[in-house]
Design a protein around this nucleic acid. Structure first.
Lengths: 318, 318
DNA sequence: GGGGCGTTTGTTAGCGGTAACATAGTGAAG
DNA sequence: CTTCACTATGTTACCGCTAACAAACGCCCC
């Protein structure tokens, strides 16, 4: 018992015994068994974080935000990856909840029935991140992708572009990309426009795919004057292709991506994009779990962040 | 007890009761408590994976390899990030071991005294990945970075370059990058050469930094004829810079990076690089932990993979 | 010297499962 | 109708730790 007290810094222990205990622990290479500790105390310092992918840099960045905040709370993130598969998400969630974490952070608002039920039953704070277009189980932190799409469309239309194409990923379960496209088309419709063309890809190097898709669209629909990409990586590929081909950007065609990835800083020209507030999303989500929100809100908080549009050099000035 | 049997698919239970149990579990939203289970059975289906960073795409790729293999073994990876700090690695390792995982995979061979002691005491398989240049605690899977650096230098020298500069990250704890540089200089020395210049960076967009460093080196040492980058990202930045400036690559200067990242496929020209076998490293490490190595080796296995040199278009043909 | 008080150490009973063993059904053979 | 060989369910004792409470140990004061 005294050992337990020393190792957790809880309760009074005389300095002498504390030293003796620490010394013995060091000598024996003793590592306390958290499993037993957690079982006895009904407390687990883990936070489950469930994201669709690690290869899209967006998620590692969110993780960074989460870690930063959790660092000095004694909580530890445990990451699970779903590969954009709802069933996989369900399995990962089940697995995580069976370790009774102190909280769960997961991407998106769309889940299977069973997942939703588990989240509601879990009895711990749940934060759904990245998206706020829809009902949340408990708390939510993110941006409105529908609005982001709309906003980009408005800027493009205002700049005088009329033959606009969309290039994106072929992922039925990337609901956020889908919402952006919906918002985008909505705003186009309001301006009396419709997409001039669209192209989807899956797998492979995003940069390369961006090139290929751009080439395909420009060949198929030579009169397009704007290309809206569902992410910056394929947008960057498109930009490089256009520059290679000597196509006048943003005069002949304008380009825009989404996410505001760091990579873009190194390109020959700055791609127009929209920052998705990744770091901030992670930080706020972690704050909610750690109970560190100003105002001492307990749960059910929905935080909508506003992405900033970075016009870059690939949209002509209106 | 019968419930426990049903939920773990262990032991005989009649089809009727099994159904009743599952139905009740579903209705109640019951999620078994793995903490208690693990404590009782002394078995934990978690594998600790400790890596320096998530923002370098190398590690997510290794993780993918690990997940792929672990998927159908019932084991689950738990990721910890150290930010290249040995003390942080020690803390993360301690935290992980206190959950008594079935195995530990961690990057690198360099650890604090305490970390090494913990690994030795842990009583579970330990796999050190990425590097094989040094003594391993238990098993190791990786490439020889020293040899990789040497090999690249040999190719560069053979192609006739003589004024060679190195551009890399300012990270005292990136031992692998350091070993590559050592091997590189070693091979240069053997050819009677020394580095003509060197430049280091830290933080920021790697692509942008690659540009900036390249500019700096070319300005400072105008007669360099080769730039060896410690990773592909800054190499790509350098390549873009050279193309922008109309510098003849690989005639006036040659370029090479390291890692073989997918990104390179989309660049205007293929950067010479060396594949670090990321996916394979992850897979083999996971196989070792899962006890699925052909030959039924138990531990202490060291697997050295051979990186393949991809000459690309940025080294002139000898 | 004994009572009261604050501090330090020890005791006991679980936490929610599982291993190992014990018991209760069940159908076929004797 | 037993007996046997199974299969299906139930019992018991932990796993290694912590909450809550109990005891021991000074120390001061009357």
């Amino acid at each position: 018992m005294t050992v337990s007290r020393v190792l957790r810094n809880r309760g009074d222990v005389s300095e002498a015994t504390r030293e003796r205990v620490l010394e013995a622990a060091r000598r024996l290479g003793y590592v306390p068994n958290k499993i037993a500790g957690a079982l006895a105390s009904q407390r687990v310092n883990l936070v489950g974080v469930i994201i669709p992918s690690l290869s899209n840099m967006v998620f590692p960045e969110v993780l960074t935000g989460i870690s930063d905040v959790l660092e000095d709370t004694g909580l530890q993130p445990v990451v699970g990856v779903t590969n954009y598969l709802p069933e996989r998400e369900e399995a990962v969630l089940y697995e995580m909840l069976s370790w009774r974490p102190s909280g769960v952070i997961l991407a998106g608002l769309e889940h299977t029935e069973a997942s939703r039920a588990m989240l509601e039953q879990a009895g711990v704070p749940v934060v759904e991140i990245m998206d706020v277009d829809g009902p949340a189980v408990d708390s939510a932190v993110g941006i409105s992708h529908r609005r982001a799409g709309r906003q980009m469309a408005e800027v493009i239309v205002a700049a005088g572009y009329r033959r606009i194409a969309f290039l994106g990923t072929q992922m039925p379960n990337d609901f956020r990309a889908k919402k952006r496209l919906e918002g985008f088309e909505e705003a186009l419709a309001k301006a009396g426009l419709a997409l001039a063309d669209r192209e989807f890809y899956s797998g492979g190097s995003a940069l390369l795919k961006g090139r290929e898709m751009t080439e395909a669209v420009l060949k198929r629909t030579p009169d397009v004057d704007f290309l809206y990409y569902s992410n910056d990586m394929i947008g960057a590929g498109g930009l490089l292709y256009c520059l290679d081909q000597g196509i006048d950007v943003p005069g002949r065609v304008g380009l825009a991506g989404f996410n505001g990835v760091e990579l873009l800083d190194g390109l020959p020209r700055r791609l127009a994009t929209m920052d998705a507030c990744r770091l901030e999303i992670g930080q706020i989500a972690a704050e909610i779990i750690a109970g560190k929100r100003p105002g001492g809100v307990i749960g059910g908080e929905v935080v909508e962040l506003t992405p900033t549009l970075q016009p870059g050099d690939t949209i002509r000035k209106a």
